[in-house]
Computed example of a mutant assay.
Amino acid sequence: MTYTPRAVAGMLGVAPTTLRTWDQRYGLGPSLRTDGGHRRYEDADVEVLRRMVVLTGQGVAASSAAVLARHEPQTRPSVARSPLTWQNAISAQRSLLAAAKRLDEPTMSDLADQLITDHGVVSAWEAVFVPALVELGELVADTGQGVEIEHLASGSVLFALRGIPRASGPGVLSALLSCAPDEQHWLPLEALGAALSEQGRTWRNLGARVPADALYDAVTRLRPAVALVWAHRRELALRVPLEEFGARPGTVLAVAGAGWDGLELPSYVHRPATLTEAIRLVVDRTGS
Protein backbone atom coordinates (compact mmCIF):
# COMPACT_ATOMS: atom_id res chain seq x y z
CA MET A 1 0.00 0.00 0.00
CA THR A 2 0.96 3.63 -0.39
CA TYR A 3 -0.11 6.55 1.76
CA THR A 4 -0.59 10.27 1.34
CA PRO A 5 1.41 12.68 3.55
CA ARG A 6 -1.76 13.51 5.47
CA ALA A 7 -2.48 9.83 6.14
CA VAL A 8 1.09 9.25 7.35
CA ALA A 9 0.95 12.33 9.56
CA GLY A 10 -2.23 10.98 11.13
CA MET A 11 -0.69 7.56 11.73
CA LEU A 12 2.36 9.01 13.44
CA GLY A 13 0.68 11.86 15.30
CA VAL A 14 2.75 14.63 13.71
CA ALA A 15 1.85 17.63 11.60
CA PRO A 16 2.09 17.35 7.78
CA THR A 17 4.49 20.30 7.89
CA THR A 18 6.81 18.21 10.08
CA LEU A 19 6.94 15.50 7.40
CA ARG A 20 7.72 18.14 4.80
CA THR A 21 10.53 19.53 6.94
CA TRP A 22 12.03 16.09 7.53
CA ASP A 23 11.90 15.44 3.80
CA GLN A 24 13.55 18.73 2.86
CA ARG A 25 16.20 18.80 5.59
CA TYR A 26 17.06 15.14 6.11
CA GLY A 27 15.83 13.31 3.03
CA LEU A 28 13.24 11.28 4.95
CA GLY A 29 10.72 11.58 2.17
CA PRO A 30 8.44 9.30 0.20
CA SER A 31 9.80 6.73 -2.21
CA LEU A 32 7.10 7.32 -4.80
CA ARG A 33 5.40 10.13 -6.62
CA THR A 34 2.30 9.87 -8.76
CA ASP A 35 2.20 10.90 -12.40
CA GLY A 36 0.82 14.19 -11.14
CA GLY A 37 3.79 14.70 -8.82
CA HIS A 38 1.99 13.89 -5.57
CA ARG A 39 4.07 12.31 -2.82
CA ARG A 40 3.23 8.77 -1.74
CA TYR A 41 4.81 6.88 1.16
CA GLU A 42 5.40 3.13 1.21
CA ASP A 43 5.38 0.95 4.35
CA ALA A 44 9.19 1.07 4.58
CA ASP A 45 9.09 4.88 4.45
CA VAL A 46 6.55 4.93 7.28
CA GLU A 47 8.73 2.70 9.47
CA VAL A 48 11.70 5.05 9.01
CA LEU A 49 9.50 7.98 10.03
CA ARG A 50 8.14 5.99 12.97
CA ARG A 51 11.71 5.51 14.24
CA MET A 52 12.30 9.24 13.71
CA VAL A 53 9.28 10.07 15.88
CA VAL A 54 10.45 7.74 18.66
CA LEU A 55 14.02 9.07 18.62
CA THR A 56 13.08 12.74 18.63
CA GLY A 57 10.55 12.00 21.36
CA GLN A 58 13.44 10.61 23.43
CA GLY A 59 15.31 13.88 23.06
CA VAL A 60 17.68 12.93 20.23
CA ALA A 61 18.52 15.91 18.01
CA ALA A 62 16.60 15.76 14.73
CA SER A 63 19.75 15.64 12.59
CA SER A 64 21.15 12.70 14.57
CA ALA A 65 17.77 10.99 14.78
CA ALA A 66 17.47 11.12 10.98
CA VAL A 67 20.74 9.21 10.62
CA LEU A 68 19.69 6.58 13.16
CA ALA A 69 16.17 6.26 11.75
CA ARG A 70 17.49 5.12 8.37
CA HIS A 71 19.00 2.01 9.93
CA GLU A 72 16.90 -1.00 10.79
CA PRO A 73 16.89 -1.68 14.55
CA GLN A 74 18.97 -4.65 15.56
CA THR A 75 16.98 -7.75 16.34
CA ARG A 76 17.20 -8.93 19.90
CA PRO A 77 19.56 -11.89 20.22
CA SER A 78 17.79 -15.22 20.19
CA VAL A 79 18.13 -16.71 23.66
CA ALA A 80 16.44 -19.52 25.50
CA ARG A 81 13.75 -18.02 27.71
CA SER A 82 13.47 -19.43 31.18
CA PRO A 83 10.03 -19.87 32.73
CA LEU A 84 8.93 -17.06 35.03
CA THR A 85 8.18 -18.83 38.30
CA TRP A 86 5.87 -17.47 40.98
CA GLN A 87 8.86 -16.61 43.17
CA ASN A 88 10.63 -14.86 40.28
CA ALA A 89 7.50 -12.87 39.48
CA ILE A 90 7.00 -11.71 43.09
CA SER A 91 10.65 -10.71 43.34
CA ALA A 92 10.46 -8.78 40.07
CA GLN A 93 7.27 -7.02 41.18
CA ARG A 94 8.93 -5.91 44.42
CA SER A 95 12.00 -4.64 42.58
CA LEU A 96 9.88 -2.72 40.09
CA LEU A 97 7.69 -1.21 42.82
CA ALA A 98 10.70 -0.21 44.92
CA ALA A 99 12.29 1.54 41.96
CA ALA A 100 8.97 3.21 41.13
CA LYS A 101 8.58 4.61 44.63
CA ARG A 102 12.12 6.04 44.38
CA LEU A 103 11.16 7.58 41.01
CA ASP A 104 14.12 5.64 39.63
CA GLU A 105 13.10 5.52 35.98
CA PRO A 106 16.41 4.12 34.59
CA THR A 107 16.23 1.13 36.93
CA MET A 108 12.57 0.52 36.09
CA SER A 109 13.32 0.62 32.37
CA ASP A 110 16.27 -1.77 32.78
CA LEU A 111 14.19 -4.18 34.86
CA ALA A 112 11.32 -4.12 32.37
CA ASP A 113 13.63 -4.61 29.41
CA GLN A 114 15.41 -7.53 31.08
CA LEU A 115 12.13 -9.23 31.95
CA ILE A 116 10.97 -9.02 28.34
CA THR A 117 14.32 -10.27 27.05
CA ASP A 118 14.42 -13.21 29.46
CA HIS A 119 10.76 -14.22 29.53
CA GLY A 120 8.93 -12.58 26.62
CA VAL A 121 6.20 -9.97 26.54
CA VAL A 122 3.29 -12.14 27.65
CA SER A 123 4.96 -13.50 30.78
CA ALA A 124 6.45 -10.15 31.76
CA TRP A 125 3.13 -8.36 31.22
CA GLU A 126 0.84 -10.80 32.97
CA ALA A 127 3.08 -11.86 35.86
CA VAL A 128 4.90 -8.61 36.68
CA PHE A 129 3.81 -5.44 34.89
CA VAL A 130 0.05 -5.74 35.41
CA PRO A 131 0.18 -6.64 39.12
CA ALA A 132 2.71 -3.87 39.82
CA LEU A 133 0.75 -1.23 37.90
CA VAL A 134 -2.52 -2.30 39.53
CA GLU A 135 -0.93 -1.91 42.97
CA LEU A 136 0.29 1.58 42.08
CA GLY A 137 -3.14 2.49 40.73
CA GLU A 138 -4.77 1.34 43.96
CA LEU A 139 -2.29 3.45 45.93
CA VAL A 140 -3.39 6.54 44.00
CA ALA A 141 -7.08 5.68 44.41
CA ASP A 142 -6.76 5.06 48.16
CA THR A 143 -4.51 7.98 49.13
CA GLY A 144 -4.86 10.51 46.32
CA GLN A 145 -1.09 10.53 46.08
CA GLY A 146 1.50 8.85 43.89
CA VAL A 147 0.29 9.85 40.42
CA GLU A 148 3.87 10.70 39.49
CA ILE A 149 4.98 7.22 40.59
CA GLU A 150 2.29 5.51 38.52
CA HIS A 151 3.06 7.61 35.45
CA LEU A 152 6.82 6.98 35.58
CA ALA A 153 6.25 3.24 36.03
CA SER A 154 3.84 3.13 33.07
CA GLY A 155 6.31 5.10 30.97
CA SER A 156 9.14 2.73 31.83
CA VAL A 157 7.08 -0.31 30.84
CA LEU A 158 6.06 1.45 27.62
CA PHE A 159 9.71 2.24 26.83
CA ALA A 160 10.64 -1.43 27.23
CA LEU A 161 7.71 -2.63 25.11
CA ARG A 162 8.65 -0.25 22.33
CA GLY A 163 12.20 -1.58 22.36
CA ILE A 164 11.05 -4.67 20.48
CA PRO A 165 11.80 -4.20 16.76
CA ARG A 166 8.65 -3.65 14.72
CA ALA A 167 7.93 -5.98 11.82
CA SER A 168 7.48 -4.25 8.49
CA GLY A 169 6.94 -5.11 4.86
CA PRO A 170 4.32 -5.27 2.15
CA GLY A 171 1.05 -7.09 2.52
CA VAL A 172 -2.01 -6.93 4.70
CA LEU A 173 -1.67 -5.13 8.04
CA SER A 174 -1.99 -7.85 10.69
CA ALA A 175 -3.75 -5.81 13.37
CA LEU A 176 -5.18 -2.36 13.93
CA LEU A 177 -5.51 -1.60 17.65
CA SER A 178 -7.69 1.13 19.11
CA CYS A 179 -9.23 2.35 22.35
CA ALA A 180 -12.95 2.95 22.64
CA PRO A 181 -14.13 6.58 22.62
CA ASP A 182 -13.02 8.29 25.88
CA GLU A 183 -10.95 5.23 26.90
CA GLN A 184 -7.56 6.49 28.08
CA HIS A 185 -5.88 3.23 29.18
CA TRP A 186 -3.99 2.28 26.04
CA LEU A 187 -0.91 0.56 27.55
CA PRO A 188 -2.54 -2.91 27.20
CA LEU A 189 -2.71 -2.31 23.44
CA GLU A 190 1.02 -1.54 23.41
CA ALA A 191 1.61 -4.85 25.20
CA LEU A 192 -0.42 -6.67 22.55
CA GLY A 193 1.46 -4.86 19.81
CA ALA A 194 4.84 -5.73 21.31
CA ALA A 195 3.80 -9.38 21.60
CA LEU A 196 2.73 -9.31 17.94
CA SER A 197 6.13 -7.87 17.03
CA GLU A 198 7.71 -10.89 18.72
CA GLN A 199 5.60 -12.99 16.36
CA GLY A 200 6.72 -10.98 13.32
CA ARG A 201 3.26 -9.44 12.78
CA THR A 202 2.63 -5.88 11.64
CA TRP A 203 0.35 -3.65 13.71
CA ARG A 204 -0.67 -0.08 14.38
CA ASN A 205 -2.11 1.46 17.51
CA LEU A 206 -4.51 4.39 17.15
CA GLY A 207 -4.14 5.06 20.88
CA ALA A 208 -6.52 6.56 23.41
CA ARG A 209 -9.95 8.15 22.99
CA VAL A 210 -10.56 7.22 19.35
CA PRO A 211 -13.93 8.48 18.04
CA ALA A 212 -16.03 5.78 16.43
CA ASP A 213 -16.00 7.49 13.02
CA ALA A 214 -12.19 7.77 13.11
CA LEU A 215 -11.87 4.07 13.87
CA TYR A 216 -14.32 3.25 11.09
CA ASP A 217 -12.33 5.36 8.60
CA ALA A 218 -9.03 3.76 9.67
CA VAL A 219 -10.42 0.23 9.27
CA THR A 220 -11.81 1.13 5.85
CA ARG A 221 -8.52 2.60 4.64
CA LEU A 222 -6.06 0.13 6.16
CA ARG A 223 -8.16 -3.06 5.86
CA PRO A 224 -6.32 -4.94 8.63
CA ALA A 225 -6.69 -8.66 9.14
CA VAL A 226 -7.91 -7.93 12.69
CA ALA A 227 -9.28 -4.71 14.18
CA LEU A 228 -9.37 -4.82 17.99
CA VAL A 229 -11.03 -2.28 20.30
CA TRP A 230 -10.07 -1.99 23.97
CA ALA A 231 -12.33 -0.81 26.81
CA HIS A 232 -11.73 -1.34 30.52
CA ARG A 233 -15.14 -0.12 31.70
CA ARG A 234 -18.65 -1.04 30.56
CA GLU A 235 -19.81 2.53 29.90
CA LEU A 236 -16.84 3.04 27.57
CA ALA A 237 -17.49 -0.18 25.67
CA LEU A 238 -21.10 0.85 25.11
CA ARG A 239 -19.91 3.89 23.16
CA VAL A 240 -18.55 1.68 20.37
CA PRO A 241 -21.28 1.19 17.71
CA LEU A 242 -20.34 -2.36 16.77
CA GLU A 243 -23.48 -2.84 14.67
CA GLU A 244 -22.40 -0.01 12.36
CA PHE A 245 -19.20 -1.82 11.49
CA GLY A 246 -21.00 -4.97 10.44
CA ALA A 247 -19.30 -8.11 9.17
CA ARG A 248 -16.45 -6.76 7.03
CA PRO A 249 -14.89 -8.96 4.31
CA GLY A 250 -11.22 -9.51 5.04
CA THR A 251 -11.26 -7.98 8.53
CA VAL A 252 -12.14 -9.66 11.82
CA LEU A 253 -13.58 -7.30 14.42
CA ALA A 254 -12.54 -8.09 17.99
CA VAL A 255 -12.99 -6.48 21.40
CA ALA A 256 -10.93 -6.83 24.57
CA GLY A 257 -10.85 -5.53 28.12
CA ALA A 258 -13.08 -5.89 31.18
CA GLY A 259 -15.54 -3.33 29.80
CA TRP A 260 -16.98 -5.94 27.45
CA ASP A 261 -17.74 -8.47 30.19
CA GLY A 262 -21.40 -9.45 30.16
CA LEU A 263 -22.29 -7.45 27.04
CA GLU A 264 -24.14 -9.14 24.21
CA LEU A 265 -22.00 -8.91 21.10
CA PRO A 266 -22.89 -9.35 17.41
CA SER A 267 -22.07 -12.82 16.10
CA TYR A 268 -19.22 -11.52 13.93
CA VAL A 269 -17.36 -9.92 16.87
CA HIS A 270 -14.62 -11.98 18.54
CA ARG A 271 -13.89 -11.62 22.27
CA PRO A 272 -10.40 -12.86 23.23
CA ALA A 273 -10.30 -13.11 27.02
CA THR A 274 -6.52 -13.02 27.46
CA LEU A 275 -3.47 -11.54 25.83
CA THR A 276 -2.51 -14.99 24.56
CA GLU A 277 -5.94 -15.46 22.94
CA ALA A 278 -5.68 -12.07 21.22
CA ILE A 279 -2.26 -12.98 19.82
CA ARG A 280 -3.56 -16.33 18.62
CA LEU A 281 -6.49 -14.65 16.86
CA VAL A 282 -4.15 -12.39 14.89
CA VAL A 283 -1.65 -15.18 14.14
CA ASP A 284 -4.41 -17.51 12.94
CA ARG A 285 -5.80 -14.81 10.65
CA THR A 286 -2.43 -13.99 9.11
CA GLY A 287 -1.02 -17.48 8.63
CA SER A 288 2.26 -19.02 9.69
Results as ranks from 00 to 15, higher is better:
residue 252 V to C: 01
residue 42 E to K: 07
residue 21 T to L: 13
residue 44 A to H: 15
residue 93 Q to N: 03
residue 31 S to M: 02
residue 158 L to E: 10
residue 259 G to K: 00
residue 64 S to V: 13
residue 192 L to C: 10
residue 163 G to I: 01
residue 253 L to Y: 02
residue 39 R to L: 09
residue 21 T to A: 11
residue 275 L to V: 14
residue 160 A to V: 09
residue 276 T to K: 14
residue 95 S to I: 02
residue 107 T to H: 12
residue 138 E to G: 13
residue 8 V to Y: 04
residue 277 E to V: 11
residue 32 L to P: 08
residue 243 E to G: 14
residue 256 A to V: 08
residue 18 T to G: 04
residue 209 R to V: 04
residue 62 A to P: 15
residue 226 V to D: 00
residue 150 E to L: 14
residue 121 V to G: 01
residue 197 S to W: 02
residue 249 P to S: 15
residue 87 Q to L: 15
residue 255 V to E: 00
residue 201 R to Q: 05
residue 27 G to P: 00
residue 3 Y to M: 15
residue 59 G to T: 08
residue 280 R to H: 14
residue 183 E to S: 06
residue 30 P to A: 13
residue 61 A to S: 08
residue 181 P to K: 04
residue 53 V to N: 06
residue 259 G to S: 05
residue 223 R to S: 14
residue 192 L to H: 07
residue 234 R to I: 09
residue 227 A to P: 15
residue 206 L to Q: 03
residue 277 E to D: 14
residue 115 L to Q: 10
residue 161 L to R: 01
residue 37 G to S: 06
residue 231 A to T: 00
residue 259 G to H: 00
residue 50 R to F: 13
residue 11 M to Q: 12
residue 221 R to Y: 14
residue 235 E to T: 04
residue 284 D to G: 13
residue 172 V to S: 08
residue 74 Q to G: 15
residue 195 A to G: 12
residue 236 L to M: 13
residue 140 V to E: 10
